[in-house]
Write a protein that binds this DNA or RNA. Structure first.
Lengths: 127, 127
DNA sequence: GTCGATGCAAAAACTTTGCATATTC
DNA sequence: GAATATGCAAAGTTTTTGCATCGAC
């Protein structure tokens, strides 16, 4: 049966689920490697694609050549990219009404917001 | 002098400037090729990176492995990705106040919004 | 002629695929 | 033992770099 959960998949899924924000494939590998030492990057990508297809996770495009992955089902939220440490944080509470900027005849399914700036840790670190 | 404008750079810059929305590197090459037949993709990438550094254009992350580039200085606007034709449209008019979702101690520089949906042309095309 | 820009091809980086081995039931 | 998943390595992509040549002053 395909619902079989190997230790690799478990480690990868948990890495994504437990993260505070979206992670890159190599970050996922690094974290999951702590539980499954010889975990290959191919397995990480294969698992990511499986989880994307099943809808358990989704991609978050952050910048050129920087996609990260996060679990679905965390509720409506958006992202904050710190330009100092390059970490992405989840942010809850969305101002809402995007509809006013949608052109006539267009149909909106969803929206995502990415805020750029400097996180509290980096602001404190650097006087 | 470094302000020298070759026909390649001119064609690439114009392709980006004249586009109705952000373009991918290969799309830029395709358009610019109409004026400069043997234009290589390396020149496109080199020019993109130059224009990014000088601040004339900026990257728009759309999805995994899909970054597009647009001119800066079009005023504040956001993007609409049509999941049917995969085109990205500019949208003007921004609802504004993102500040309420920014965590304490974080500092916002900028924000970008990507709306997903179906464009008017695709809605009309498919009953 | 000097300087920088280009095209091509090679290299690097990132992602996917093939295949023999390993794991689960 | 059958079926699926894994690791490794090879193949695909995408982006960058090296280098000989070309073009502008």
């Amino acid at each position: 049966m395909s619902a079989h959960q190997t230790k690799q998949r478990k480690a990868i899924t948990e890495a994504i689920q437990n993260a505070q924000g979206p992670l890159r494939p190599t970050e996922i590998q690094l974290i999951a490697c702590q539980n499954v030492p010889r975990l290959g990057i191919a397995t990480v990508y294969r698992t990511i694609n499986m989880l994307l297809e099943s809808g358990e996770i989704q991609a978050v495009p952050i910048a050129a050549n920087d996609v990260r992955y996060e679990p679905t089902g965390r509720g409506h939220h958006h992202h904050f990219l710190c330009h100092s440490c390059n970490k992405v944080y989840d942010m809850h509470g969305c101002s809402g009404h995007m509809s006013k900027m949608i052109p006539d005849g267009f149909e909106m399914d969803d929206h995502e917001i990415l805020i750029h700036g400097k996180c509290a840790a980096c602001k404190k670190a650097k006087k």
